[in-house]
Design a protein around this nucleic acid. Structure first.
Lengths: 177, 177
DNA sequence: TCACACATGTAATTTGTTACATGATTTA
DNA sequence: TAAATCATGTAACAAATTACATGTGTGA
């Protein structure tokens, strides 16, 4: 039940059309909750029907016509009660770790290349995050809201740091560095 | 496409019945690829139909009767080619980070309690992993297979370490420690 | 006017979750 | 013999993924 709440959060930060949301889910929000445009359009329809958001009035609605949404009070209430609730951490589900475990059983030609490829991808993501941190959060005096956003970004940075460190170690221990 | 490969890996490590697999997915394999018994039974059916596994011959088969599976050569081949392939890291999807971002918008009464609860859960998981490490991987001379399994466990330890560190930091920065 | 980017959607399939149903075996 | 546990399964639904379809506006 996270996608609708991700969309409500994004729309509260800034009313948007479906395509704009899709772009924002390719960065920012998408850094911790990814979604494709198909998911987003479907969910926008559901949220509108539930009375949690509404389309801003515009000239002529229809296919191919931009449609911008804003959050209604009911949507804000729903989001607040979701935030206040409980939800256990999800168990990890990582295909690369699974593949390494499988490689221990059936052998692993070429696994080193794959680990190097992932290492490079994670290094890039890390560089992007630290760039954002310098740009947006270098001021030490932040409002509570921005301290929270900074913490979320920090989680992204720390996670990418974990991956780069772990992958480098894996390559070294497998004699593949 | 990871679940069938997780099951093939588990069955290669040790032929098992559906319920045994379910238990093993509650630990070990499940530490990086979780699955419920419904998913497992469905997937066992598919794998059997695809000729990747077979049920070991037994007395009288049927509902309520234990049914043990082993991997066929075709299954091993399939697993090996999946391991040798490419697969990009998945984008992160974490509800807690999303909730924190939402809390920055709609407020966050009680978020501190939830963070403390998660911190405690991650500490326990971390303790379980380090216990396994001491029990199973304290010998410095490991075969390649065991070095790989150790690396996978190490990823679990490092991930839980990340969470405990990040959560403690979050509590402290939000003045909730 | 034609290609391209913008923009919104549908359809089909797979994967994951939740709830329930059924039979066999053990043991109090 | 009744309850608990072991064991396998079905059904219904929700979420995510992949591929495709359709219309609008703009500038070369």
């Amino acid at each position: 039940m996270s996608l609708p709440h991700a969309i409500l959060t994004a729309l509260l930060e800034k009313p948007s059309s479906g395509l704009e949301l899709t772009r924002r889910f390719d960065k920012s929000i998408g850094y911790f909750w990814s979604a494709t445009h198909q998911q987003i359009y479907r969910e926008l329809g559901r949220l509108e029907q539930a009375g949690h958001i509404r389309a801003l009035p515009s000239g002529q609605p229809g296919r191919g016509q931009r449609k911008e949404y804003e959050v209604l009070p009911a949507g804000r209430t729903e989001l607040a009660s979701w935030v206040a609730g409980r939800e256990d951490p999800r168990p990890v589900r990582d295909p690369l770790l699974l593949r390494m475990r499988a490689a221990a059983v059936v052998g692993s030609p070429g696994l080193g290349d794959e680990l190097r490829r992932h290492l490079e991808l994670h290094r890039r993501q890390l560089a992007e995050y630290t760039g954002i941190e310098e740009r947006d959060f270098s001021d030490p005096d932040l409002a509570e809201q921005d301290r929270m956003r900074h913490l979320v970004l920090r989680a992204g940075i720390d996670l990418e740091t974990f991956w780069t460190t772990w992958l480098a170690r894996a390559l070294s221990e497998l004699g593949e560095e």
